[in-house]
C-alpha cells in the first residue's frame, strides 16, 4: 500500500484522462492500442498464469488422451497415436467400469440425501434458540481435511470392537453381535465411505439452505396460514418453492464435488478392497501415477471433464442470466 502516495502526481499515469477513458468508455471512440496497456497490466499476470498452468495443461491432457505413452513423465518415450482406443479400452476395463458405477452410486444416493437432510436440518434448527450452536456443530467437519476425515472414519468403522465406535455401540445393543468389517466388505465399503462424506459435507448444505430459509419473508407464511394452510402445506407450497433456487445450487455443487471425489476414498480404502470402492478420481490417479499410463490416465481425466461439462454449462448460464454489467 505504500505505493499509493507516489501515484498522486499525474505523470505517474501517462495521462489521467486517458486512464479514465477506460473506466467510462465513450461508445464509438476509435480503438487505440495505448489504452490496452493498463488493462493488460492488471489482467495480464493472472491470465498468463491461468493460460500456462491451467488451459495449456488441460488441452495437453485432451491431446494425450488420444495417445498411448507409458512412463512418459520425465522420459520422452515416443507418442503413439491410438485414436479413441483409450476410451474404447475403458469400456472393457472392469476397474474403470466399477469406478464409473461407484461414482454414479455416489451421485444417486448422496445428492438427494444431502439436499433432503440439509432442508430438514435447516428447518429444524430454525425452530430452536440454540440454532447457532447446532449449526456450528454440523459445520465443524468443513474445517477438517478429507484426509483427516478419512482417519476419523477409519477409526469409527474399525473392525476391533475395542477400537471402532460403531461396532462397539452396536455390540452394546445387539446380543451376540459380530463385528462388521465396514471397510473390508465389498458390499458395504461404498456406503461406509458415503457416510463419512455425508458427515463431512452436510454442514455446508445446512448453512446455505438455512440462509435461504431465513430470507423467506415471514408474512408470506403467515398469509398461507391465515388462508387455512397446514404447516406441511405451507412448507410444501411456500417454503420449498422459495428455497428452490438455492436447492438447485446445492444440487449442482454437491454433484460436482461427488464427481471429483478423491481424497477421502484414497485415504480410507485406496479404492479397495479388491477395487470395490474405486471412483473415477482414484482410477485416474492410479493409472497415471502408479502404473505410469499417461495416455490412459489422461483419457480417464477427460471422461471426468465430460461428466462435469453439463454442470459447467449450467454454471455459465446462471452467471449469464444474472446479467453482466
Amino acid at each position: 500500500m505504500s505505493l499509493g502516495p507516489s501515484l498522486v502526481s499525474p505523470p505517474a499515469q501517462s495521462s489521467a484522462s486517458d486512464g479514465s477513458g477506460a473506466v467510462v468508455t465513450l461508445p464509438g471512440r476509435r480503438f487505440r492500442p495505448a489504452r490496452l496497456l493498463s488493462p493488460l497490466l492488471f489482467v495480464g499476470p493472472a491470465l498468463l498464469l491461468i493460460g500456462v498452468f491451467v488451459i495449456y495443461p488441460s488441452v495437453k491432457t485432451i491431446y494425450y488422451s488420444f495417445y498411448t505413452q507409458s512412463n512418459a513423465i520425465g522420459y520422452n518415450l515416443p507418442l503413439v497415436f491410438t485414436g479413441f482406443d483409450n476410451f474404447a479400452n475403458m469400456w472393457n476395463d472392469s476397474a474403470v467400469r466399477t469406478a464409473v458405477i461407484n461414482n454414479l452410486l455416489w451421485l444417486i444416493i448422496l445428492t438427494p440425501l444431502t439436499v433432503v437432510l440439509g432442508v430438514l436440518l435447516a428447518v429444524l434448527f430454525d425452530r430452536v434458540r440454540y440454532e447457532a450452536v447446532a449449526k456450528s456443530i454440523v459445520f465443524i467437519p468443513m474445517a477438517i481435511s478429507a484426509t483427516a476425515t478419512g482417519v476419523i472414519w477409519r477409526l469409527m468403522y474399525a473392525d476391533d470392537p475395542h477400537v471402532g465406535t460403531i461396532n462397539a455401540i452396536l455390540g452394546q445393543f445387539i446380543p451376540n453381535f459380530q463385528s462388521i468389517s465396514w471397510l473390508g466388505n465389498t458390499n458395504l465399503v461404498n456406503f461406509a465411505l458415503m457416510g463419512a462424506q455425508l458427515w463431512a459435507s452436510l454442514g455446508f448444505a445446512v448453512i446455505v439452505l438455512s440462509a435461504a430459509l431465513k430470507a423467506i419473508p415471514g408474512d408470506l407464511l403467515e398469509a398461507a396460514r391465515i388462508d387455512g394452510a397446514t404447516e406441511l402445506q405451507a412448507f410444501r407450497h411456500v417454503t420449498i418453492p422459495l428455497m428452490w433456487p438455492t436447492i438447485t445450487v446445492i444440487i449442482t455443487l454437491t454433484m460436482i464435488g461427488l464427481l471429483k471425489i478423491f481424497d477421502i476414498v484414497w485415504t480410507m480404502t485406496s479404492g479397495g478392497p479388491a477395487g470395490a470402492s474405486e471412483v473415477i478420481g482414484t482410477r485416474m490417479y492410479t493409472e497415471a501415477f502408479k502404473n505410469g499410463n499417461t495416455g490412459y490416465g489422461s483419457a480417464i481425466a477427460v471422461v471426468l471433464l465430460i461428466a462435469v461439462i453439463p454442470i459447467m454449462a449450467i454454471n455459465i448460464r446462471r452467471f449469464s442470466s444474472e446479467g453482466q454489467r
Binding site: V43, L47, I50, F53, V54, I55, Y56, P57, S58, K60, T61, Y64, A72, I73, G74, I256, L259, K260, G281, M284, Y285, A288, F289, T294, G297, S298, I300, A301, V302, L304, L305, V308, I311, M312, N315, I316, F319, S320, Q324
Partner: peptide, 25 residues
C-alpha cells in the same frame, strides 16, 4: 474471457496433473 473463467472453475484438477508434472520435471 470472463465467461471462460467461470467455466474453468469446475475443470477437474485431474486435467492438469500429468502435463504440469512434465513441465515441472
Amino acid at each position: 474471457i470472463f465467461l471462460l473463467l467461470v467455466g474453468l472453475q469446475v475443470v477437474p484438477l485431474q486435467m492438469l496433473l500429468i502435463p504440469l508434472l512434465q513441465m515441472y520435471t
